[in-house]
Write a protein that binds this DNA or RNA. Structure first.
Length: 637
RNA sequence: GCCGGCAUAGCUCAACUGGUAGAGCAACUGAAUCGUAAUCAGUAGGUUGUAGGUUCGAUUCCUAUUGCCGGCACCA
C-alpha cells in the first residue's frame, strides 16, 4: 500500500497491518509524533486499538487535533476554489478555529451569502480531483518570489524567522506551516457558514478584509449533527427566549438599554436576593452609591482622563459637570473614607449592586450580553497586602459556590504585570501574583496566564464562562488595585499607630446581572430552576364556574408558603392552557377538577415530564420547598 | 466605530422581474363548558422603520438616516 505523506514523500507499507502498526511505522520513518486516521472517516489516536480496512495515513507531526487539521486543509480548499472563481483575489490568514475555519480574503467586489453555494460547489469539484497536498520547504527569497503579488503574504514572509514552507494542491500554492491531510479527496463534509468583515492582522487601522467562515468534518453524520447543534443554539438564543418568556425588551429609543418585563424582573430580583444573601453570609456589607457624581471625582479617579469617551456626561449651565458612573469604585472609596478605619476592621468588604452606564460602540451591542446600562454585582474590598492571599482564596470559594448553582463551566485567566507601564513595587506585584496563582492552582479549575495583560494598577483574574453558543463571556473578575486607594488618600491606622494605605480588590461574580441572565437563559434553554423561575406553579381549573374558587384557595396557600403561583382561569380548553403552561416552561402545572374538590390530594405535571403525579397537598409543598432550598436544576442536563 | 446583511399587523412570516399588501398565532365578539400540548365561527388590525429621490405609479429601484443581525475592533 502506498501512502502520501504530508511532506510529499511516498511510503510503502505492508498490507494487512493494524492501523496502529501502520501509524507507528510512518511515525518512525518520519521520526515524528504521529496521529493516524483511516479513510473510513473514523479517527484514531496512535495509541488506541484500531479496527480498520488497511488504509491509513499519517497526518501530523505536531500535537494537532485531527479535526483542526481537517478544518485547516478545508480553508486551503476554500482558497483554491476562490482563486479559480475570482483570479484577482488576495489571501490573508486562513486558520482552523474552534468548530471550523475561516479565510480572510481581499476582493474588490463584495461577496454575498448567495455566492457561498457556488464556492462550495467549486470546492467539491476540487475535492473530487483529489489533488495531493504537497509540502515544500523554501527559502525566504523563493517565498517572496512566489507570493510577490500578494502584499499580505509578503508581509507575513518577512516576519518569519523559522523554516518557511509552502503547500501545493493542483496549481494552487499557499504559504503555510502545515500540517495538512494528504490530499483534497479527504475533504468531503463541509459547509460555508457566513461572511463577515475582519481587519487585517486584527488591527482596526488596517484594511478590512472579507472573512468567510466554514466548518468541516470527517463524516456527513458529524457535519449534520453540528449543523443541527447550530439550529438548536438559535432556539436557545436569549433574545428569542427573552421575548417568548416575557423577560425583557429593548427599544429603539435606547439602544443597549434593556427594559425588564414583569417576568424578567421577578427573575432578576430573585437572583439579586440570592446574591445579597450569600454575600452577607461571606462577611460583606452592602452599600448603594449615587448613579452620577461630579466631574471632580472622576478627575481624581482618573476616569475623566482615561475613560471619558465611554462615559455619559450631563450638561449643566454652570461649570459643574456631572458624569453617570461607568464604575462603582470611586463611590465605594468615598464610603470607606467616610470613617476612620483600624487595621482590626480589615478586610472591609463593600458589596454593591451598582447600576452603571457605558457608552459602548454601537456595533458591540448584543441583546443582554453587551449593553450600555447594566448592574454590576460589584464589591470593593479594602485590606492589607498581607491579607491578599487569604482573601483571594475566600473569593474563589464564593465564586465556585455561586457558579455551581447554575451548572456553569468556566476557566480562569491570570493577567500579570505589564512590561513597563505599571505602578508600584515589583516585589508587591510578585507577591500578589503568586497569591493569585496559588489560589487558581488550588481552585480545581483550569487556568491560564496572560503575561503582561494586567492593568497598570494591579494583576487580575478573569472568569470566563461558556454560553450555549460556545462563545466565551467574561463574567467574574477579581482585580487587585494598588493605585486607587492612594489616589484618594485612603488610610487605616496600623498596629503601630501609623497611618497606612490599604490595597483594594475590585471584584464581581456575575459581572453584569443583565449579561448573566442572558447566559443562564441560554444555559437552561429558558427552563429555569424552580427557585429562580418567574412563575413556579400554574393552577388550571377544569371548569371556572365549579373549580376556580378552589384554585384561588390553593393560590393563597402557596403564596403563604412563599411560592410564586398563578391561576390560569381563561375561558379556554384545558389542553390549550396546558400547552401554554409547557411553552412558558412553568415548572409545575396543577389541574383542579371535580376529583380534587373533595380530596386532600392534588395532581401536578412537571415541566418536561408527560406523566402527571398525584400527591398529598402538604407533601407537594414540602417537596417543592425542598427543591427550592437545594436550588435543584429543573431539567437534568 | 468598521465590513456585510436585514427592517412588512403585537409575534412569526408571505407578496414573480415596480401596478398602493396577505396568512397563521395573539387580540376582540359570539357559540361550545370541555380532565393534561392548539374547539369553531366572525371582527378588527398596516402612511410597508424614518426622510428624501427616480417613476404615470414604489413594500419592490436609488440616496441618506435609525435600529437590529453576523463578524471584526473595543470591553483600563
Amino acid at each position: 500500500m502506498k501512502l502520501i505523506l504530508p511532506d510529499g514523500k511516498e511510503l510503502l507499507v505492508e498490507e494487512g497491518l493494524s492501523g496502529k502498526e501502520v501509524a507507528k511505522q510512518i511515525a518512525t520513518s518520519l521520526e515524528k509524533k504521529a496521529l493516524a486516521y483511516s479513510l473510513d472517516g473514523k479517527l484514531y489516536d496512535i495509541n488506541s486499538k484500531i479496527e480498520h480496512d488497511g488504509r491509513f495515513a499519517i497526518i501530523t507531526d505536531k500535537s494537532v487535533e485531527a479535526i483542526d487539521l481537517l478544518n485547516h486543509s478545508t480553508s486551503h480548499l476554500l482558497a483554491q476554489a476562490l482563486k479559480n472563481l475570482y483570479p484577482e483575489v488576495k489571501f490573508g490568514f486562513g486558520p482552523a478555529i474552534e468548530e471550523g475555519f475561516y479565510y480572510d480574503i481581499d476582493l474588490d467586489k463584495p461577496l454575498v451569502e448567495a455566492d457561498l453555494a457556488n464556492i462550495e460547489k467549486e470546492m467539491h469539484r476540487l475535492a473530487k480531483e483529489n489533488y495531493p497536498i504537497i509540502r515544500k520547504n523554501v527559502s525566504k527569497e523563493e517565498a517572496l518570489e512566489i507570493f510577490k503579488d500578494n502584499e499580505y503574504k509578503v508581509e507575513l514572509i518577512q516576519g518569519i524567522d523559522d523554516q518557511i514552507s509552502i503547500y501545493s494542491q493542483g496549481d494552487f500554492t499557499d504559504l503555510c506551516s502545515g500540517p495538512h491531510v494528504p490530499s483534497t479527496g479527504y475533504i468531503n463534509h463541509f459547509k460555508l457558514l457566513s461572511l463577515a468583515g475582519a481587519y487585517w492582522r486584527g488591527d482596526s487601522n488596517n484594511k478590512m478584509l472579507i472573512r468567510i467562515y466554514g466548518t468541516s468534518f470527517f463524516t456527513e453524520q458529524d457535519l449534520q449533527n453540528h449543523l443541527q447543534d447550530l439550529e438548536e443554539r438559535k432556539k436557545r438564543d436569549h433574545r428569542k427566549l427573552g421575548k417568548e418568556l416575557g423577560l425583557f425588551m429593548l427599544s429603539d429609543f435606547g439602544p443597549g438599554l434593556p427594559f425588564f418585563l414583569p417576568n424578567g424582573y421577578t427573575l432578576r430580583r430573585t437572583l439579586e436576593d440570592y446574591w445579597l444573601k450569600i454575600h452577607k453570609e461571606h462577611g460583606y456589607v452592602v452599600i448603594d452609591t449615587p448613579i452620577m457624581l461630579s466631574k471632580q471625582l472622576w478627575e481624581i479617579s482618573g476616569h475623566w482622563d482615561h475613560y471619558k469617551e465611554d462615559m455619559f456626561i450631563t450638561k449643566v449651565e454652570d461649570d459643574n459637570e456631572y458624569a453617570i458612573k461607568p464604575m462603582n469604585c470611586p463611590g465605594a472609596i468615598l464610603v470607606y473614607k467616610n470613617d476612620l478605619h483600624s487595621y482590626k476592621e480589615l478586610p472591609l468588604r463593600f458589596a454593591e449592586l451598582g447600576h452603571v452606564h457605558r457608552n459602548e460602540a454601537t456595533g458591540a451591542l448584543n441583546g443582554l450580553f453587551r449593553v450600555r446600562s447594566f448592574t454590576q454585582d460589584d464589591a470593593h474590598i479594602l485590606l492589607t497586602e498581607d491579607q491578599i492571599a487569604d482573601e483571594v482564596k475566600n473569593i474563589l470559594k464564593l465564586y465556585d459556590e455561586i457558579y455551581s448553582v447554575f451548572g456553569l463551566n468556566y476557566h480562569i485567566e491570570l493577567s500579570t504585570r505589564p512590561e513597563d507601564n505599571f505602578i508600584g513595587d515589583i516585589e508587591v506585584w510578585n507577591k500578589a501574583e503568586a497569591a493569585l496563582a496559588e489560589a487558581c492552582a488550588n481552585s480545581g479549575h483550569s487556568y491560564k496566564i496572560n503575561p503582561g495583560d494586567g492593568a497598570f494598577y494591579g494583576p487580575k483574574l478573569d472568569f470566563k464562562l461558556k454560553d450555549s453558543m460556545n462563545r466565551i463571556w467574561q463574567c467574574g473578575t477579581l482585580q487587585l488595585d494598588m493605585q486607587l486607594p492612594g489616589r484618594f488618600d485612603c488610610s487605616y491606622i496600623a498596629e503601630d499607630g501609623t497611618k497606612k494605605c490599604p490595597v483594594m480588590i475590585h471584584r464581581a461574580c456575575f459581572g453584569s446581572i443583565e449579561r448573566f441572565i442572558g447566559i443562564i437563559t441560554e444555559n437552561f434553554a429558558g427552563a429555569f430552576p424552580t427557585w429562580l423561575t418567574p412563575v413556579q406553579i400554574n393552577v388550571l381549573p377544569v371548569k371556572n364556574s365549579l373549580h376556580e374558587s378552589r384554585c384561588n384557595e390553593l393560590k393563597k396557600l402557596f403564596e403563604q408558603n412563599n411560592l410564586r403561583v398563578q391561576v390560569d382561569n381563561r375561558e379556554e380548553k384545558l389542553g390549550y392552557r396546558m400547552r401554554e403552561s409547557q411553552i412558558k416552561k412553568i415548572p409545575y402545572t396543577i389541574v383542579i377538577g371535580d376529583k380534587e374538590l373533595e380530596s386532600t390530594q392534588i395532581t401536578y405535571r412537571k415541566y418536561g415530564v408527560e406523566t402527571p403525579v398525584t400527591i398529598e397537598l402538604n407533601d407537594f409543598i414540602e417537596m417543592i420547598n425542598k427543591e427550592i432550598a437545594n436550588k435543584d436544576l429543573l431539567v437534568k442536563k
